[in-house]
Amino acid sequence: MSGEKTLGVDIWRGGADGRYQSFEVPARENQTVLDVVTYVQRHLDSALAYRFACRVGVCGSCAMTVNGRPRWTCRTHVSRVAKAGRLTIAPLQNLPLIRDLVTDMTPFFDKWQRARGRFVPGEGPRDQLAPVPPDKPERAAASAAIECINCGVCYSACDVVAWRDDYLGPAALNRAWAAWNDVRDGDRTGILKAVSASGGCHNCHTHQSCAAHCPVSLNPTFSIAGLKRASIKAKLKGELAP
């Protein structure tokens, strides 16, 4: 690389008791953080473990901690985040570390299930489609929350997740809010019961780290506030009784 402009990058290696390893990679005018990690893996150390798939900001699998902040690395340009010509790349926080930049996403997706963020059909006849006008408030609320790419950035950024490991987290609660606003769902009260259990939506401190870091500009804090309102109303009506 003599004569070529280079970029210094420190990458986390090993498990939870690992350490940063420094590399020098070619500095390009247009270069994403994922490009840098891929260069290291293909040219400097093939044992580096990291995760990616689509490379265009759709699949949500390449999230990492870049210079201290969780980001989707395929859509994060180095020029926007490199401090004094250096990058520090670590795995996502708040998730068990497998190795290098790869975390175990199992707790993250288990919580999606616990928050009941999935469709439960009603008992109506199957040949009868439920009309859902696009301008219906519930449809608008669901639309605002539905484009989550499951990257885990908000989960990594959330202080409450760091403080209590049973907290469902912004992504699962955001998904539950979208599901609750689906008027076709056959058990909407079941969603409110799920998000009102221990570790549920009422633990959110409204720090808004999730909204500040979400790469697709969703606002999970707003969704969680909606769940709080809906569950409190249900509580006052006695609908949350086991």
Binding site: H202, N203, K228, S231, I232, K235, L236, L240
Partner: peptide, 8 residues
């Protein structure tokens, strides 16, 4: 925090 404690 439960819904009741949140409300209170």
């Amino acid at each position: 925090m439960t819904p009741l404690s949140y409300l209170l």
